[in-house]
């Protein structure tokens, strides 16, 4: 790890100002990803601004009937929060599918949004990586790319976003609150993470000096019909090869009135295709309908060799998650 200076402000404004006026400064909260990357020399901040004492530690009801998750509430406290478990079980399940209990006790909601890719070439400073070192090339495209993206890729980068939580947040249409020197603004989850294009060094649309203060969940939680299906190389504590978050609204007569389907492990951001979800509206739940929708969601998916299996895996995972959410198949 490189040497760095350290401060621990108590106020949001002080933290934002400190980050803005110091060269190569970074916020640190749980530290589970940042410190790991610093040990690998992938991140080399000159200053750490510890935000753990800022007043962003609560989960509160919103006036709109939703829930506001403080940026510094841990992943564990969020997943086990009574309101989250009851009203947003999809989010609770997705969080608990990620990392380990120890890491979930440390990792924060804000930090989870900023997780960086687990691409091996990004982590290895001896390898080319356009995300770590713009212009150096991509080792993964023609290299070992088993864990890499099949949708929304570019010639510069085929990295995936590793989060489980963010896949559920994307399905739930969560909104991220950020604060900066110019004031506060909100970013819908749809626009928070970005596709790599020719600037893969930018994971998201947060501007330098901005601080995530909260994640807001809209009232609709899909608590009656939901599923988070995560497929990985071992039974627990591994990143997703493919994951699917599903939320369905189903009428008393069995007609689907709304569908949300978000994919993890397949792209640079949680992947959704709203026009495919629309195909489910007005339909009754059935495997045949779900297969058509799955084909539509992964339309255009492209494998790079080692990860080509993900195309079929994603298709089947979408169908299975929809079967589980509509209760046509039991969750095993």
């Amino acid at each position: 790890m490189n040497s760095f200076s350290y401060v621990r402000p108590d106020e949001i404004d002080v933290a934002i100002d400190d980050l803005s006026v110091h060269h190569a400064a970074k916020f640190i909260a749980g530290g589970t990803n940042l410190l790991d990357l610093m040990k690998e020399n992938v991140e080399r901040p000159a200053r750490l601004v510890d935000i753990n004492r800022l007043p962003l530690q609560t989960i509160d009801d919103t006036a709109e009937g939703g829930l506001r998750l403080g940026a510094l509430v841990t992943n564990a406290d969020t997943a086990y929060n009574e309101q989250v478990e009851k009203r947003y079980p999809l989010l609770s399940q997705a969080i608990l599918a990620g990392a380990s209990p120890q890491l979930r006790n440390m990792a924060t909601n804000g930090g989870n949004l900023f997780q960086r890719t687990r691409c091996y070439y990004f982590y290895d400073t001896d390898m080319p990586c356009n995300k770590r070192k713009p212009g150096s090339g991509c080792g993964a495209i023609n290299g070992y790319n088993r864990i890499h993206a099949i949708l929304g890729t570019s010639d510069s980068c085929i990295a995936t976003h590793p989060s489980d939580m963010c896949v559920a947040l994307r399905a739930l249409d969560a909104v991220v609150h950020v604060s900066g020197r110019l004031g506060e603004r909100t970013i819908p989850m749809a626009d928070f993470h970005r596709l790599p294009g020719n600037t893969p060094q930018y994971d998201n649309t947060v501007q330098p000096g901005e601080l995530v203060t909260a994640i807001e969940l809209p009232a609709k939680g899909f608590a009656d019909h939901y599923a988070y299906l995560k497929l990985r190389d071992r039974a627990s504590y591994a990143f997703a090869l493919v994951s699917v978050a599903v939320g369905l609204d189903i009428n008393n007569d069995g007609t689907i009135t709304e569908a949300r389907i978000a994919l993890g492990g397949v792209a640079h951001k949680p992947w959704r295709r709203p026009e495919s979800e629309e195909q489910l509206v007005g339909q009754s739940a059935s495997k045949e309908v779900f297969q058509l929708v799955a084909d539509s969601i992964i339309d255009g998916a492209k494998g790079y060799g080692h990860n080509t299996f993900k195309v079929e895996l994603a298709r089947r995972a979408i169908v299975r998650a929809l079967m589980q959410a509509s209760k046509l198949e039991k969750i095993s």
């Binding site: 640190i28 530290g31 589970t32 410190l35 750490l48 510890d50 890491l103 440390m106």
Partner: peptide, 19 residues
């Protein structure tokens, strides 16, 4: 490296003592 901080288990390798 698991230890308990205020009763909660964490990985002590991924936190700074000063934090």
């Amino acid at each position: 490296c698991t230890v308990l901080v205020d009763g909660k288990r964490i990985n002590s390798c991924l936190t700074l003592a000063v934090m």
